[in-house]
Design a binder for these strands. Structure first.
Lengths: 133, 133
DNA sequence: CAAAACAGGATTAGATTAGTCCTAATTAGA
DNA sequence: TCTAATTAGGACTAATCTAATCCTGTTTTG
């Protein structure tokens, strides 16, 4: 676990980008997988996560697929990162205080809390309306 | 590779913290390993990396060990993270443009460059003199 | 009811992280 | 000068996580 988003998250961003480009049209996993060069079953998993997070909506059955559920300005990098990887923290101790074995207080802990928060804020500022310009 | 420092980096921070607390006294890997609960051989590797990065200095032979080479205000979280994990980038494409298969331009690329830079700056602001207060 | 699609659990392969082992090289001190 | 304490560093192993696949089930159009 180094300081980098996963390939899955990178794929997820491409998925959203693709849906934005399709302007409300329902797209299948097949379309997305083909156009964005993402392995089919992996793309399917990613779309499920994005749907559970409420960023996109699934339509089941023949003629089904996925559509964007929010407008581009309502979707940020943070939304996608958290939909795929879960809550952000620069060090596990931020989310799970027990994991820090240097009880009761590690002097660096508050720094990680602060840096994690800064990163969240920044990721939240990058919304997809900005990308179209 | 998710957005989080590794355990090795966390250990490295403890090593520096320990040396700072020892006020210029030469400390062995044994001391550090014992006091900070880091497996001996792993701690040895970490100290080597910190030494190569110029944060600490090694003294070989009997009575040898490690000493801080810089003052606390000259050591930041960034120095340690980069000494252990190498250059920071939120997405591989920031360091290795070739790794981005969506040539020639991915619209998200400049965002990752910017976010990586913000993170570097923030990590650089946390210097170890601040921790003592 | 058949075919096209999503849902989701279980599994596998590959990469990375975490940690170990072993054999030097260095040096203080008996 | 020999020995013990110590760092240097390459090779290796174990554990964990990421990336990807497989399979079975459910929904829905025509």
């Amino acid at each position: 676990m180094a300081i980098q988003i996963t390939k899955e998250t990178d794929y997820a961003i491409r998925c959203i980008l693709y849906l934005i480009g399709m302007n409300g049209q329902v797209c299948t996993v097949g379309d997305i997988s083909r156009e964005q060069s993402i392995p089919y079953t992996f793309a399917a998993k990613i779309m499920q996560k994005l749907a559970r997070a409420g960023l996109i909506e699934s339509v089941r059955g023949v003629k089904g697929g996925f559509v964007l559920k929010r407008r581009p300005e309502e979707i940020s990098l943070l939304d996608i990162v958290e939909a795929i990887e879960g809550p952000i923290s620069m060090n596990i101790c931020v989310l799970d205080r027990k994991s820090c074995d240097r009880q009761p207080r590690c002097p660096v802990h508050p720094w990680w809390v602060e840096i994690s928060e800064v990163l969240r804020e920044r990721l939240g500022e990058f919304t997809f309306d900005r990308i179209l310009k």
